[in-house]
């Protein structure tokens, strides 16, 4: 079977194979093999990355790249099996194809383009803690069309990759395994602030979850407000998967010492503080 295409001054005869059972089986086989291969590669690399320790995210960032490569090769195999194109024919085909999908499947291909941008520009990687739109969680998979994140309440949210063109993306760790965590505690005005900061600092640096070095510094800060004082500890959790355990442990141990030292929580904390910190107000009472 042969069709003639004309695109500007490029005219070529495109030979299209007869669609028979063998061809259909071949295409189905290529697509299934590509799917299985991506799943196997993901499984293997995620398992390897879990054993690597420090370089977990370095390994997982290869996964979307390999997936893209597998699907591009699969697409090429399918295409060449159907139409056996020459180079001018390929150019003509892709031009027409792009124009067609530009109108018909705009969002779908925007997501795929978004996937390619994510793979090469790396606004986030598998294993990162990210906020995309209103969703916060750990990136579990970056697919060709969508990114799946696991929220703190263990829900899987699928976010179209095209979202990165319209929404800000916030990555808490940018490919690193460690992540800076803010821990806010509120105490009454008139508290012995030096003593309170010393306790909070020691609760932070003795945590079993923290990592401290020149690259991962820590600090404790105090800020005075009309009805309370805010103590903020900033430190890196050694593995971002322990983000909430880290916060909880430091808060609990600091408050246990605060109570021994006679340091009390304020009677009133404005709700705006909850919004600013993004978390419910911690209280020892």
């Amino acid at each position: 079977m042969a069709d003639t295409f004309s695109l500007g001054n490029v005219t070529a005869e495109l030979s299209i194979r007869t669609i028979d059972t063998n061809l259909v089986v071949y295409i189905v086989f290529v697509l299934i093999a590509a799917y299985v291969l991506t799943r196997v590669l993901s499984f293997l690399l995620i398992n390897v990355s879990e054993r690597i320790g420090w370089y977990r995210t370095t390994i997982t960032m290869l996964i979307p790249l390999l997936k893209l490569a597998v699907y591009v090769i699969a697409f090429y195999l399918v295409l060449t099996a159907v139409i056996e194109p020459s180079l001018p024919q390929m150019i003509a085909f892709f031009t027409l194809f792009a124009a067609g999908v530009g109108f018909g499947l705009k969002d779908f291909f925007a997501d795929i383009l978004g996937g390619i941008v994510i793979i090469f520009e790396k606004p986030y990687q598998i294993g990162d803690k990210v906020t995309i739109g209103n969703h916060y969680g750990e990136v579990k998979d970056i697919g060709i069309r969508a990114t799946r994140i696991q929220t703190p309440s263990d829900e899987m949210v699928s976010i179209p990759n095209g979202t990165i063109f319209s929404q800000p993306v916030q990555s808490g760790n940018a490919g690193d395994l460690a992540m800076m965590i803010d821990i806010d505690l509120f105490v009454r005005p008139g508290t012995d602030i030096d003593r309170a900061l010393k306790i909070l600092k020691e609760a932070l640096v003795t945590s079993k979850y923290i990592i401290i070095s020149d690259r991962y510094p820590f600090t404790v800060l105090a800020e005075d407000f009309p009805f309370y004082m805010r103590l903020r500890a900033k430190g890196y959790v050694s593995d971002l998967r322990h983000e909430f355990e880290f916060k909880s442990e430091v808060t609990r141990r600091a408050w246990a010492e605060f109570m021994k030292a006679g340091i009390r929580s304020p009677g009133f904390v404005p709700p705006s503080e909850e919004v600013a910190s993004g978390e419910p107000v911690e209280s020892g009472e």
């Binding site: 690597i52 320790g53 420090w54 395994l177 460690a178 990592i211 401290i212 070095s213 050694s238 593995d239």
Partner: peptide, 8 residues
């Protein structure tokens, strides 16, 4: 312990 970031 170095691999798992307990010692650094």
């Amino acid at each position: 312990l170095k691999k798992t970031r307990r010692l650094w």
